[in-house]
Simulated assay, not measured.
Amino acid sequence: MACLFRSLTKTLIQQLHNQQKIGTCLPLAGRKISIANPLSHFRRTYISEMRKAAFEGNILRLLRNEIQCELERSPPDRPVTRFRSFTVDDRPGEQWISLKRKFGEREDIKVEVTMFDGAAPALNSGGGAGGGTGEDVQLHITLIVNISKGEDDVLEITCSAWPDTIEIKRLLIRSNNKAPAQPYDGPEFKKLDDELQDILYEFLEARGINDELAVFLHGYIKNKGKTEFIRWMETVKSFVEKKK
Rank of each mutant, 00 (worst) to 15 (best):
V215A: 08
N177R: 13
F239S: 12
A206S: 02
R31L: 03
F42M: 14
N146I: 00
S7K: 10
D89K: 12
E112P: 00
L99H: 02
E228L: 08
E202F: 00
F86W: 06
D164E: 07
I59N: 04
S7P: 00
S48Q: 14
V215W: 01
V145P: 02
R61C: 03
K242R: 14
D117N: 13
D185H: 12
K222E: 14
R78N: 14
Y46K: 02
R106L: 11
L39S: 02
R43V: 15
K21F: 08
T24Y: 12
P27R: 02
N58F: 09
E241Y: 05
L8H: 11
D77M: 11
P180F: 05
I35L: 15
E195Y: 04
F103E: 08
C3I: 05
E66G: 02
D152Q: 12
I35C: 12
R43I: 15
K226A: 09
A36S: 13
T87F: 03
A181G: 13
Q19V: 04
D153G: 01
R82H: 11
G150W: 05
L196E: 10
S160Y: 06
S175T: 09
K244R: 12
G225Q: 11
A181C: 09
P75D: 06
K190G: 09
R101F: 02
H17R: 05
S125D: 10
K102A: 14
S74R: 07
N176T: 11
F83P: 08
G93V: 00
A120E: 14
Q197C: 11
N124R: 00
I97H: 02
L4Y: 10
Y184K: 12
R101P: 03
M1L: 06
E105F: 12
I209C: 02
G132R: 09
F216D: 04
C69V: 07
E72T: 13
E202G: 05
K110E: 07
E112M: 08
Q95K: 10
L139Y: 11
I67V: 05
G150M: 08
T142R: 13
S40M: 10
V88P: 00
D164V: 00
K222N: 14
R64K: 11
I33L: 12
E205P: 00
G208Y: 03
K244A: 13
E105L: 15
N210M: 05
H218V: 02
I147T: 06
I230P: 04
E234I: 03
